[in-house]
Amino acid sequence: MPVVVYLLAFYVYPLYRNVDLSLRNYTVRSFVQGDAPFTGFANYAKVFADATFGPALWHTIVFTVVSLAFQFSIGLALAVFFSRNFRLSTTLRALFLVPWLLPLIVSSSTWSWMLNSESGVVNAVLAALGIDPVNWLTSPDWSLWSVTIANIWIGIPFNLVVLYSGLQAIPSHIHEAAALDGASGWQRFWRVTFPLLRPVSAITLLLGLVYTLKVFDIIWIMTKGGPSDASTTLATWSYRLGFGNLLPSFGPGAAVGNLLIVIALVFGLVYIRAQRRQGAAA
């Protein structure tokens, strides 16, 4: 199987490197010279003891759960909406993907532009409606929500496209049969469409989870995880430790990265288990 070779060649080495980085006490010097002493789980202990760990974990959970819930439900609603052919539907659906074309540095910067507390267009709209300006990015109470909103926006096209294809794969005669049985549109969706869409939904959510856990560029560009770590997630923390400072600390950075991998692993196991059970049932 060529894919096994491909996996071995391109993923195992980086993964090995990341694990190795996290188990050694790297300084910049030993990073370059390659003689870092093996310290076992010292980096992990350091990470767990860090005051940033608790908040970062909590922010990761909030960010991921809220993002997924909204991305998926909005994506599904749009997919259902677009699944009926109407004038311009294909063109509009294509336009929905435009956010994906933009490099994250550009789309995230645009969001931070729009949410700027002084000159942002969002606060200008609020002012026009008579609402006090919100410090979207500079208040510790708001910054996590702001980056989550931006992330939802970026994630909608992905959910839309995958779920739309999933809907198209459902044979139309099933719908027709249900309609003949006198099921209303809503009933048809919940009783027929949604169950049939389950495999695709599951993989969409799982992939969404993996991608959301990993998100760092959006947060990094919009708030740098601040202010005072109010929007720091495990991914941004890992990046900051490893690359965001004049003096990188590769070890702890890699350790946080591996923690994220472990979290995804747990969900992956749940998914595979569920899939197997389903396979056994069928």
Partner: peptide
């Protein structure tokens, strides 16, 4: 910042 001599946007 508190007195409004500097905007809160300075944080970002």
């Amino acid at each position: 910042v508190k007195k409004g001599y500097a905007p809160t946007s300075v944080i970002n």
